[in-house]
Design a protein around this nucleic acid. Structure first.
Lengths: 338, 338
DNA sequence: TTGTACGCGTTATCAA
DNA sequence: TTGATAACGCGTACAA
């Protein structure tokens, strides 16, 4: 059993109140006894109990983070951003995975409530709406990162999918491409719709005809296979460049191209989205849109802190960055505009 | 402020003791009142306070996990294994990063103690020994995963580096190679030494001369660069195959080979270690040794639980698995033995 | 079958 | 400058 202030009080021959005050450098206690008690506490290996403190203060200095799936290399950096800000503010983070199962997600949030966390952060939730409906029961701030359900719920931090997609397509346009296809992700309705919107906006701004056939209807269940499937569709419609929903899909496409002997970027330019680690290792390395992962986490945590301090907060949308690598190049026979 | 059992007691016209018992299905309480109270609790949105329960029970049903660095794609799966077992046993997990800084690692463990976690799991610690020395102060079970300091400390779960390395080298031997080099990682002394030992054991068993020149002295600071640096050394000593400390190093080597126009596996076979995600995406995809990551986490958490139940535990060493992909092949002009 | 009283470790209020 | 006491929310020994 850990040492308590009562143990120290007994050893020092004072009341436990005095010990508590001394350890807090309360000016009411004489410098002498303060020093004596602190020394004693040190020697006895005293560590205050956050549990007891929490019971009294009604705050645990704790937040809960729910992540959906472990398959996403994305998560750690998010987590790191959250934790940096949390730690600096004296908060600890509970991490729990929902495995993308709405039922588990609810269960996790329930556990967090039992533990009286001061705030909750949820990533890529597909059930953002349940929080709105249960908000009366969940008495703590909830911030969603890259929420995947349509509609506007609660407080969110998200990457600017539209802007990111525009960056990608503008890069391709700059290389002279006009036959640009898009491979989406039907299972992420919200961000998919936004990336498509960015794709269309960029083309429209450039005065390029929006050929509906260029929005490819790959339907495989996972990202990688959807990329592989997309290659044939792409060749059928005659695109010279393609923007993929994410890097995994782009990598699938690149792998399929390698098998069929189609050279990238000479015959086909490919842009991904996310800048996951493998993007820089594939051959050719992938031109992509980098999400500010750590920043997303930092902002989400900061938003929780602001909400706890009852400050106004605004939903945040973070800009992405274009990372040019080897999977994109000029259209064959065309000199790039710059 | 959340609803408490006192609130329910008041609403139900009974004592808070009765409420507490009813919610625990205590047989002393009549079925009727139990039902009434449960219904009321439900309606009022009652969630028990784990904080208050912990103060009383002296257990938090909480464990702390310290991870060293976010650069490692490894961690999430470890985390997932830990959490699976933890969740099933009713435990929640605090996650905190030390950024590979011993000082921060100590600070994190200190925070965990204040929060009265029931156990601690530390990954890839370089300061395992501090735990032994402070063990009298840290009153809870500590389990280290892949501890990186020499010596045997406390309780550990680790991958069997020797066996993994043997698998790798035996695979190369099976392809007819005898000129097999090794690229190590001086900054991970313990596992590096063990993988080297496995490499040597495999060669010795096969009756192959241990040429000290084949243990390459690449010294770059990071794994990727060390792989790139290794290529030249390798060509100098005339190896036909190489076993790398990990996948990142192997990928560095593969990338350097691509630049110099050396074809893999025709001119050089490469084996990595870890089976990180990019390993399957590089060209050629990487033959490697897969660490049972999730299992490592599960075992570590199970060990914590066993220790909490005061059961005997034994340090665990987990076997690795060979994953054959495209970066290895027969020696030019030699028919593989099988 | 139900209620009273106490304690878990800490901080805050009030009195000395 | 210090101490006695109550309170945070809950569980339990004992009494009724």
């Amino acid at each position: 059993m850990p040492v308590t202030i009562k143990d120290i009080a007994r050893a020092a021959g004072v009341s436990h109140t005095t010990v508590s005050r001394a350890l807090q450098d309360n000016s009411a206690i004489s410098a002498e006894t303060t020093a004596r008690i602190k020394k004693l506490a040190q020697e006895m290996g005293y560590t205050p109990s956050a549990v007891a403190q929490s019971l009294l203060s009604q705050r645990t200095l704790t937040i809960g983070m729910v992540v959906t799936t472990i398959a996403d290399p994305f998560i750690i950096q998010l987590m790191d951003g959250v934790e940096q800000v949390a730690k600096a503010a004296g908060y600890s983070v509970f991490l729990s995975t929902s495995h993308n199962d709405p039922e588990q997600e609810i269960a996790v949030v329930d556990t967090f409530q039992r533990r009286r966390v001061d705030g909750i952060i949820v990533t890529s939730s597909r059930v953002g709406s349940v929080y709105s409906s249960r908000l009366d029961k969940i008495q703590v701030p909830i911030v969603l990162i890259n929420n995947q359900e349509e509609g506007d719920f609660l407080h969110t931090v998200a990457v600017d999918d539209v802007q990111g997609a525009q960056l990608a397509v503008e890069h391709l346009l700059g290389q002279g491409h006009v036959q640009i296809a898009y491979v989406g992700a039907p299972n992420r309705p919200k961000s998919n719709r936004r990336r498509l919107a960015g794709y269309e906006a960029a083309l429209r701004q450039a005065g390029v005809y929006l050929n509906p056939e260029f929005v490819l209807a790959a339907e495989a269940g996972n990202d990688l296979e959807r990329g592989q499937e997309a290659l044939d569709l792409l060749l059928t419609v005659g695109a010279t460049a393609v923007f993929c929903y994410n890097d995994i899909t782009a990598i699938g496409l690149v792998m399929a191209a390698a098998e069929q002997g189609i050279t990238i970027p000479q015959e086909l330019s490919v842009v991904g989205f996310d800048d996951i680690e493998p993007a820089s290792y594939v051959t050719p390395s992938l031109t992509t849109i980098r999400q500010p992962r750590s920043k997303l986490g930092q902002l989400a945590m900061q938003m929780v802190l602001d909400l706890l301090h009852e400050q106004e907060v605004q939903d945040q949308s973070l800009a992405c960055e274009l990372i040019v690598r080897q999977s994109t190049g000029p259209v064959p026979g065309v000199i790039p505009s710059r």
